[in-house]
Design a protein around this nucleic acid. Structure first.
Lengths: 376, 376
DNA sequence: CTGTTAGCGCATTCAT
DNA sequence: ATGAATGCGCTAACAG
């Protein structure tokens, strides 16, 4: 060790500094809060020295207790396993850093109960606001924060009955973009594969938009304001659309249930096997994954079943652009994840500072990245 | 909205509860701290009711201020972009949850200056301990915490001059495992590709172990206790080993420097092009990536250069098992990331609770996952 | 068993 | 321009 170990290196307090500088605590406090104009240069110098000598660092907890704000915000994540989450997190981190906020990260790991507990814990730390990538849909879950008067901004999905700022992908436009791309490239049998979506607004919107395009009525419109809920199909169910003979299906893939996944994949296999000659583009099925986890699950399965050359048999397009998409040549719609995180913090910051406008929705556009997978 | 918006929903304090329950603050405090045996059932019931009625939640900040501990720990991450980091984070989250700790996540984003700032910020929040996946190697950087008497546990890499608990992969064993696997499968021209390693102990150890195996002296030993530092080769440099005519090279890939990456890759291309007939296994070059980011960089480049069938020309083995490894059939050595994170928190918790034993190293074994890439 | 008192480290009146 | 006093919400002696 290069430093002499000290006995009980109790951190210096404002009182210590005051004594060391031969002055009162008030002046130290003033110095800390940048009220320089009210301090004689002489005193100021002494304080500076004392602080340095004692390696003093003001206790944020105490400050927070006193002034009622501690610069802490909560960030509740549904699933760290999803690359999307991590990317958003980076934007959040950056924004926090820029705005002088400190994020408390909580990982609900897909368990609603955890989500509830963490929310409660966060209020206990008196965070000034919370960014939530919600798992549960019930406003009830958000009660601890929502009604507690502490600002909330939602990311990616909304929660019924809760009106707050939210920022995320323009799901409608993204799904349309993807569906159109597939249609334009001659695919006439398209499967939209998505996790159970009754509970998640973003999935709902994507599925609905896909279905609309497939049924030929796909307008170019943006998402509606608070986005009406829509009854989703049950697992394994699928509806057929029609745009000049093209077929569109929705396949639900419940990643949390191994058995269900296998059932759904079997259904898919059946369709693929029946899709006839792989060289006929018109006969090549296209899969439209609603997000990266789904896309990965599909890719892994297809590779296992059809070998390394699986893409010759099936085309894959994914919302989300995971790092392996480029590597495997899978077409993707990249979400502006970093910006989503950044904006979320900005919104929250404004609320914390007292902005009172009505709830805002910030819908950011996705970017289509065409790769070999969806080209003939 | 389903709830009636309240004016200034100022959170209830212990005083409010005391008044509501018609008792003193002390009893409330006792109740909060589970000292039930000292409370008459009657009073206890009244308190319970009052708390429920007021939706009271004790202020952690205030508690922390008083008792000197706030259950907060810091988690400093070098790079969230690395899947390794995220996986470790999950273990950390889980352990914290189990031990009643709250992690403050900080992302240094590969900037040493950020690392320093965050460390300082963390002490400001009076975290009880810190888990560090260090960027900088200087003990100096860790000064704010290391010498401040607050416990630190290192993850993945150590910091010279700083003796503390550390947990990570058994790098020596892992590198040996990988090198041996390649040797056993008949590869005789192996390139160990690694980011600049002068600064990072884990990379150093991996490279050194690789080199030893290639030079035929690779013992089966574990890493030495505090692991002696070793002078690393400069960018682009490579040494040749010899074990019955096999050649081992070390290639440095500085991912942070685009130009340097291109130079290094060019060198690699040259070697591959010169490696002769792709069908002769003995002539097929094997790449041993020191971690996932390197592996991804290599894979992307090779695919761009040699097409989708690049693996016919080059074998790839990676330490770290990113999600795309299975998909592309790349052999990997999986780190017990979750456990690393979990153990780190356990160590830290023990230190926080006052354990005084000398610094411990926890070296966890990697698991070789053989895939098509490294088989003939 | 229960309440009173005295701070934890700091920011803020209010005097000086 | 500076300092003394008060209290944020809570815990920990110390009495009753």
């Amino acid at each position: 060790m290069s430093t002499t170990p000290q006995a009980t290196p109790r951190r210096a307090t404002i009182t210590d500094v005051a004594r060391e500088a031969g002055t009162g605590k008030t002046s130290i406090s003033r110095y800390l809060n940048g009220e320089m104009s009210v301090l004689s240069p002489e005193l100021r110098a002494r304080i500076e020295a004392a602080i340095a000598r004692l390696d003093y660092q003001p206790n944020q907890m105490a400050r927070g207790l006193k002034r009622g704000r501690n610069r802490l915000i909560g960030m509740l994540l549904a699933d760290l396993t999803n690359p999307y989450t991590v990317e958003v997190l980076q934007g959040v981190e950056a924004a926090c850093h820029a705005l002088g906020l400190m994020p408390l990260i909580c990982h609900a790991a897909n368990e609603v109960e955890m989500e509830r507990r963490y929310l409660q814990l966060l209020t206990t730390y008196r965070v000034e606001g919370v960014i939530v990538n919600a798992l549960g849909v019930r406003e009830e879950t958000l009660r601890p924060v929502g009604s507690g008067g502490i600002p909330v901004v939602l990311v990616d999905r909304m929660v019924d009955g809760l009106v707050t700022d939210m920022v995320g992908l323009d799901n409608r436009a993204a799904a349309e973009l993807g569906a159109r791309h597939l249609l334009d490239n001659g695919f006439d049998d398209i499967w939209f594969v998505v996790q159970p979506f009754e509970q998640v607004s973003s999935r709902q919107l994507r599925e609905a938009a896909f279905r609309e395009v497939m049924s030929g009525q796909g307008g170019k419109g943006h998402e509606g304001g608070t986005g009406g809920k829509r009854e989703g199909g049950r697992a394994g169910s699928n509806r057929d659309g029609s745009e000049g003979g093209v077929r569109g299906h929705t396949l639900v893939l419940n990643l949390g249930d191994q058995a269900a996944v296998e059932r759904a994949l079997a259904e898919l296999d059946h369709a693929i096997d029946a899709s006839g000659n792989p060289t006929r583009t018109a006969g090549r099925i296209a899969l439209f994954a609603a997000n990266a986890p789904v896309a990965l699950c599909l890719a892994l399965h297809l590779k296992a079943r059809y070998g390394a050359d699986w893409q010759a048999r099936v085309a894959l397009l994914s919302i989300d652009d995971p790092e392996w998409a480029e590597l495997t040549g899978v077409t993707a719609i990249r979400q502006p994840t970093y910006e989503i995180g950044y904006r979320a913090v900005e919104f929250l910051h404004e609320r914390i500072e007292g902005v009172q406008t009505t709830a805002r929705d910030c819908l950011l556009p996705g970017e289509l990245i065409v790769r070999a997978s969806t080209l003939r």
